[in-house]
Structure formats: structure tokens, C-alpha cells
């Protein structure tokens, strides 16, 4: 499944993560990650994002993630919200 619309979720406040998903021309998942704890937790954050995207069956997508120290469940929540918004039928209230 591919994303055909751009959507955002989250904020740049402490303990949160800002996620923007958008259509990608290329096959696969492209992830650009910025984080205040990139050196310590970059791999874990990346894995959480990719796992959440895969669980939704999305295989073609571009993701920008700007992390401010979010816990795993916050990362999952923000990614799922961005995907819900990008994949929702027009006019559907989420």
C-alpha cells in the first residue's frame, strides 16, 4: 500500500515527536530522522517508526521525523495518527 496524501501529527515540544508522511515516487520506505537523542536512541526510534508503518501494510512512503525525546508509545501514536490522516477517505471524521 502507498500513501497518496501528505499528513502530519505530533509537535516539536519536549517528549513529543513530529511526524510528516508524504507520497514517495520510489518503492520502499524513506525515513529522515532528526532527534535530540540520535546517538543514544536513533536506532530504536527508527525501528519503532518502521515497525509501525509495516504493521499498517504501507510499503511506499516518505517520512520526516523530528524527535524531542518521545517514548516508544508516543512515537507509535504519532506515526499511526499521521498514517490514519494520510489514508483516510475524504470527509471521514477521525
Amino acid at each position: 500500500m502507498r500513501v497518496t496524501r501528505t499528513a502530519k501529527a505530533g509537535t516539536l515540544e519536549s517528549n513529543d515527536i513530529f511526524i510528516m508522511v508524504s507520497p514517495s515516487e520510489a518503492e520502499g520506505v524513506t525515513l529522515e530522522l532528526q532527534s535530540i537523542v540520535l546517538a543514544q536512541f536513533g536506532r530504536q526510534i527508527r525501528e519503532t517508526i518502521l515497525r509501525t508503518v509495516a504493521a499498517r501494510g504501507v510499503t511506499q512512503i516518505s517520512i520526516l521525523a523530528q524527535d524531542r525525546g518521545a517514548l516508544d508509545y508516543t512515537i507509535e501514536a504519532r506515526v499511526e495518527t499521521a498514517l490514519d490522516r494520510a489514508l483516510a477517505e475524504p470527509g471521514v471524521i477521525l
Binding site: A9, G10, T74, A77, R78, E80, T81, D84, R85, L94
Partner: peptide, 8 residues
């Protein structure tokens, strides 16, 4: 942000 808060 209702959807976002509900998910969080």
C-alpha cells in the same frame, strides 16, 4: 487534534 489525543 481529537484523533491524535485519542490515539496518544
Amino acid at each position: 487534534e481529537k484523533d491524535s489525543a485519542r490515539k496518544l
